[in-house]
Design a protein around this nucleic acid. Structure first.
Lengths: 392, 392
DNA sequence: ATAGTTTTGTTTACAGTCGACGTAAGTTCG
DNA sequence: CGAACTTACGTCGACTGTAAACAAAACTAT
């Protein structure tokens, strides 16, 4: 028996060599490139790139552009990704919604489907719906399942990264310990990735708006408050996968308000959507859910505006210390309240730029999440595509 | 003219091939290994490893152990690093001290030399002393300069990582913008690395005590307060190199005490050594420097003990939020006060374990820095050795 | 038209690695 | 005590990925 078994002679995951995958990676942004330029980018000889490009073309992953580019010498043919030659299934599941869609190699969301769920809906039921939706979406494009290269799943829950299972999810208790990887792999023979939703949103926002950024923090303010971190260009999860769990950092403003975690004065106890609802109810506003706050904001209700602004300040206080600690270049603020006007983000900016040191804030952008962009699905796609490209 | 010039046909930095460097890396911990085991570790065929090992042996970087290992079959010869076949010059410079030493490939500090400096000492003078010391230390071992593979320099200052120059160093102003890389490279023809001292201490502590840890935070409390981060096994510097600058995070305990940064209630304004001196003076203790605090601590002075304990709590408050954010598995507390009794670290533990979420603190160790270990020099060595091994 | 520029395709060469084979040198068991 | 077994060693032929050189192609500029 051979001691060292080859991982299939020279072909990688998509049926092409590892070198070809490196070439493919340069094309993932969708921009066509000449072979010379690709060679410069990845630092291998042009002749090698030419071979790998041919490989990609015959695998259907890339194609030559019709029109050559004139530049003083022999015109160059540009190579372009065939974005939908392979696709991934992206899934995003929260406490109240489930979204799934098909994402191409170019990380674009081609089609999607959404349904509302509630806490009582069992994981199996939701995932069955996802499978049905996926089949239907594939059929709509007349695509075979074999085109699917991977599945990326985002859950609004902490994920134990050794097993890829949710662990004590506060807002979707039925998912505790549910093994989505096995569930999908019993039905589809492709890699399945499971990830915390804020992490995917971080990946998605970067892909959409900040492709060159190496250090990005995505903070989501909704039922809970959490963050996803991209550090040195890579998703950072921490030792147990709890990195970014800033919801229970203590604020200096209020050390008394009790939090469901057992401590007092947590960010989540003061600035989360439920806490805002409670506060506004106390001020005599009639409202019950997060969307009611949005209505009040749109109507210009002063109490609501001030409450949200203050929530921004509270979040900003925590983010100020994270800026000192990890020195990111972009902070993206997401969650349903983030995109209604500028109230939330203004509060964040107010505190962060006042507190953090100038050297750290010099190159720092604090922005709203792109509304309606489905960053989580895009992020799931990015994660899955990346996995396929770098898998051994 | 060839478009793509080879980076020297097949030999890497130490005069051996890249594959040989991969083998060398497995030996860096000093433990001897059989060829079969190395092959398993790095995932290449045994025959290849055998070739690379021969390469290393003939380059003098490794040697065969005398005695074979008996294990039921043909005895295997184990390969061992020759730790001092190459060495690096490690340098650590603070406001009041300069230390330099020779570190071997095994990251052990072989010899060192120390001198006191003061803020008025010019960089050129200090580095000249370093060069003299290095020459003398080399001579003491009868080693030629050619044995030197790199220089690693730690400075108690923020480093602009594009230029590797200190930028607005609060405690060593003469170093502002000083280009230590050029200075050394005018005298030695080897790579020169410059790094913030806390970053090196993080690397050093990991090498000494936590070799398997992927996520470690080193916090240093002295004149200033700063931290070095190792995330996913790599030094993390942040976008502008200011990651870990936690000295000016605002505390909830006191929002009034002014800080030299212009804000109020910063950690550094409340828990740094100068602030402790001021506080103890206010309480009628006669003292002037940090070492006086140490004397008081050793004498069991209650005011001093309580002040240090409180400093630990203050630091702990900031570290609690960093634990939430980056979820490390080890926090090392360093600085002169950290190793006098357990007062400081007890304060840190008290707050961190009370505040941070159980999932994050489950696997978390909070420990004192190894006293007298010269972790900064070790870290400088680690950085330099790593650079040599991975340089193209 | 001619010279210059830049990309392209092809061919040859080479470095690195793999897997196999035969051999060496112990341990274990009958 | 010898045979069978186990494990490691050294060498060799083959293959793969890449590099470098060359000649041809297809444009622009003069």
């Amino acid at each position: 028996m051979p001691r060292h078994t080859r991982t299939s002679p020279n072909k990688g995951f998509l049926g092409v060599s590892a070198g070809a995958l490196a070439v493919l990676e340069t094309l993932l942004d969708g921009r066509p490139r000449t072979r010379v330029r690709i060679a410069d980018m990845i630092g291998v000889a042009r002749s090698t790139v030419a071979l790998r490009v041919d490989e990609l073309v015959s695998a259907g992953l890339a194609r030559f552009e019709e029109d050559p580019v004139y530049s003083g010498g022999r015109p160059s043919m540009r190579i372009q990704l065939v974005p939908d030659s392979r696709i991934v299934l992206a899934v995003d599941i929260g406490a109240n919604h489930a979204v799934t869609g098909l994402v191409d190699l170019n990380s674009r969301l081609i089609v999607q489907r959404r349904r509302e769920v509630d806490v009582a809906t069992r994981p199996e039921e939701i995932l069955s719906w996802v499978m049905d939706a996926a089949a239907s979406l594939l059929a709509g494009k007349a695509w075979d399942v074999s085109r699917l290269a991977a599945v990326g799943v985002g859950l609004a829950a902490p994920i134990e990264h050794a097993t890829l299972r949710p662990i004590n999810p506060p807002i979707m208790p039925l998912w505790d310990g549910f093994d989505a990887v096995s569930w999908f792999q019993g039905r589809l023979d492709v890699p399945v990735l499971v990830e915390k939703d804020v992490n995917l949103m971080a990946l998605g926002e970067r892909r959409l708006k900040w492709p060159k950024t190496q250090n990005l923090l995505f903070a989501k303010l909704s039922t809970g408050i959490g963050a996803g971190l991209i550090l040195d260009g890579k998703l950072y999860r921490g030792e147990q996968g709890t990195a970014g769990d800033i919801g229970h950092v203590r604020l200096s403003r209020d050390m008394d308000t009790p939090c469901h975690c057992g401590n007092h004065g947590c960010l989540e106890a003061l600035a989360s959507v439920p806490s805002l609802i409670a506060k506004l109810q106390g001020e005599g506003q009639g409202l019950e859910s997060g969307s009611d706050i949005i209505e009040l904001l749109k109507a210009g209700n002063i109490d609501a505006v001030q409450a949200v602004r203050q929530a921004g300040r509270d979040l900003g206080e925590v983010l100020a210390s994270t800026v000192s600690l990890i020195n990111p270049s972009v902070i993206v603020i997401g969650g349903s309240l983030a995109s209604v006007g500028e109230h939330l983000i203004t509060g964040v900016r107010e505190i962060v730029f006042a507190r953090a040191m100038p050297l750290s804030t010099k190159g720092l952008s604090i922005v709203q999440a792109a509304p309606g962009s489905n960053a989580a699905l895009i992020g799931a796609g990015v994660l899955a595509v990346n996995h396929v490209l770098h898998a051994t």
